[in-house]
Simulated scan of single mutants.
Amino acid sequence: MRYGYLGPETTFTHQALLQALAAMPEEAAAQVEAVPFSAVATATTDLLAGDIDAMMAPIENSVEGGVSGTLDVLAATDAITIVAEQVVQISFVLAARSATALDQIEVVSSHPHAQAQVQGWLRNQVPQAHVAASSSTAAAARDLAALSPDQARGRAAVCSRLAAEHFGLEILAEGIEDYEGAQTRFVLVTREGRIPARTGADKTTLVIQLPHNRAGALLEALEILSSNGVNMSRIESRPIGDFMGRYSFSIDLEGHIEDRRVAAALRSLHRLCPVVHYLGSYPRVDGQRADVREDFVDHAYDEAREWVERLSAMIAPA
């Protein structure tokens, strides 16, 4: 089994994959080869082609919100399925090839999402530094470590402590994130199309496109969820790309497609929306169960269906 992740080694995505493997049976985890990729889109292409069996990708950050690259890739196809999630605590360090005074730092490299989470610290501590983008936090550390001492002079990277130590960098400052306790959520994606069994503490992820130029279409979609007692834990809009003003909505729901209330909501969304991408139902990593009202539990739907069927049986032949 080959599992892809946003590389190189020691990225937060790599840490999320290691957490997922640690939760697997030892024999199964031993059969997994971790394969680094430079971008989520590249890993998705290989996943769809069958070159890898699964991939771990960041989807949401507690500070920055949704990870647009992952959301757009997931919205582009219904041939992949989310089967699990992981949450990683995020903390950053500023690292360099050798000990350097902060006022001598001229360039700081990192992934844009990491930059956004330390921008306050960078503004206050290294206001003179130019901020450059890298494909990942670990790539910023790796690329800095590969430079000669002269080339690395005045350069630093924002990365994890693990990445700095792995690539032999000097840590200049740690705990530089603007929000202590920040977390990033990752999803494990496969192409098998198999849905994990309901656990009672689950999430369902989907992407919908609303009817074009129909007033109140978003409200209708939200009312479908509300009328079935389905709570959202995330909703984000992303441009569809065909022309201005057209957006899709990426949504996380509390519950599993096997829950009657979730299934009923999906059926109604399918009637309303021209496009519904179902991306999977999977266990919540925190194990938290949804607080479901009595009239939305499974047996309430079953009893209502049976009641209508009894009434329908009384209809006289035409």
Rank of each mutant, 00 (worst) to 15 (best):
P283C: 00
I195E: 14
A34C: 13
V88E: 13
W121E: 07
D302S: 10
S281H: 07
T199L: 03
G65M: 03
Q119Y: 07
G69D: 14
M56N: 08
P283K: 04
A30T: 04
E9L: 11
F243G: 02
T100M: 10
A157H: 02
L147H: 05
A49F: 04
P58R: 03
M56P: 04
G4M: 07
G287N: 09
R284Y: 03
D295E: 15
Y247I: 03
R185Q: 12
I208A: 00
D78G: 14
D286C: 07
V35E: 09
L222A: 14
V292Y: 02
Q183N: 11
S233D: 13
F167E: 08
E27H: 10
E236R: 08
G7T: 12
A318P: 15
S281T: 08
M232H: 02
R310P: 01
A23T: 09
R271C: 10
Y179W: 12
M56H: 06
E27D: 15
G280H: 02
S268M: 12
Q15P: 00
H111K: 03
P149N: 04
G216P: 11
M314S: 12
E220F: 03
G4H: 04
A34M: 15
D53N: 14
D103L: 08
F92D: 15
Y179F: 13
G193K: 01
P274H: 11
L169H: 05
L17T: 03
V118R: 05
T45D: 14
A41I: 05
G175I: 01
R191Y: 01
E165P: 01
E27W: 01
T44R: 06
H130P: 01
H113P: 00
S160D: 03
G65Q: 08
G66D: 02
P25Y: 06
F243I: 11
L311G: 15
T184F: 00
